[in-house]
Amino acid sequence: MNMKSDDERLRELFEIKEKPNFNKTIQKAKIFSIIRTTIVSLMVFIIASFVVFSLNATILNEISNKEQNNLEAWYNIAMPNAFLGCVQVDDRIMVGELDYTRYRYLGNKPIIDGSYKDGYSYMYLINGIYGDLENYLFDRSGKSEKDLNEAQAYNKAGKKVMKFYDPSVNYENYTNDLKKLDEIEGNKLMEISLSFDKAYDFEEVKNMIPSNITLNWYWVDTFTENSEDSLNKFIFDEYDVHGIKALDGEGKSLENPEKDFINVITRCKNNKDYSSEYQKLFDILSNGKSEINKEDLKIIGVVVSGDRNSLKALKDKNYIKAATIGAVADKY
């Protein structure tokens, strides 16, 4: 019988008892390492996500503020009788959206002019995907360019888009909706664009409009003598023209409305975040000077509003070349 020595017995004892403990320790170490790696990775992911989302929110917030400022500036020099209403900002990942309402004044009554969207992004390739920049309810059609030019357009709220006729152009046909006033119910309010026979000084126009009619907006002549649009006898609609709001956002008459118009153009022409449109307007209106003066503003039309009876006072005024009805709503 083979007898084991004490050393052999001792070695077997340690091999049996120590080996499992050593493997268990290694297993525990591996599990701990995996848990630690997972926790560290999760913490890195959370921190990185927080940084990315914070940076995304900061950038989009800055862009949305610029977009809103740009909209407000544009509504101050264009958009006849249209005001920027409440704005809702919706920022997502890399893209955002401004949802806003538009409204108008018919006399002293504000009416909703539709809901609109303007998209923005700091990624060029996806910029504008969520935007909604079109103003029209549907695309106009016609058998010829003349038919298309004279076709009636509607905005997204179903309002007729007003037309404007450049007094330096001899058009084949002129619209005169003042002749249609008797067809409209007496309990209605409406806006009408008036295109003048020539350019008038700012102060002259104030005295040309009867006091019982609301003067909403002045159309400023921003065309050059070699205007391609004029040569083509282009009839402008309310999204093509620039001018001065005579009312503030609460429907109150402004004392010196031309100042806001001049200030916006002067301020925005040097702002890289805005369109070169402001620089172009400044160059035309300043006539080569370093500033735009009130005397530089030549008025070639207006937008007015009121009821049927008050607007009848405009009939047969020799300074009115064309007139088109826009929004119509109940008085009460």
Rank of each mutant, 00 (worst) to 15 (best):
Y171D: 13
D6M: 11
E295N: 01
K298A: 09
Y136A: 11
A313S: 13
E172Q: 08
G306I: 09
D316E: 12
S253E: 15
L98G: 05
K160Q: 11
K315W: 02
P20V: 01
E12A: 08
I16G: 03
D118L: 11
S121L: 04
S305N: 07
S195H: 01
R36K: 06
S54L: 04
D91S: 07
G306F: 06
M190W: 08
N176G: 02
V205P: 09
K245S: 12
E183L: 13
Y218V: 03
N81L: 04
S54G: 03
L178A: 05
D197Q: 07
E15K: 10
D139S: 13
K180M: 09
T175L: 09
E12C: 00
P167Y: 11
P80L: 15
L42R: 00
K317H: 01
T222Q: 00
Y165P: 08
K321M: 14
S286Q: 00
E250S: 13
I292K: 08
N271A: 11
D283Q: 10
M3N: 10
D201E: 14
D237T: 06
L137P: 04
F202Q: 02
Y218H: 12
L194E: 09
M190D: 03
N256K: 14
K4F: 03
K156S: 04
M162V: 11
I235G: 03
I126K: 05
D229K: 12
A78Y: 01
S41C: 13
N81P: 02
E145N: 13
K4C: 00
Y103G: 08
E18Q: 02
Y200N: 05
R140L: 13
I126E: 07
G249P: 00
T266E: 15
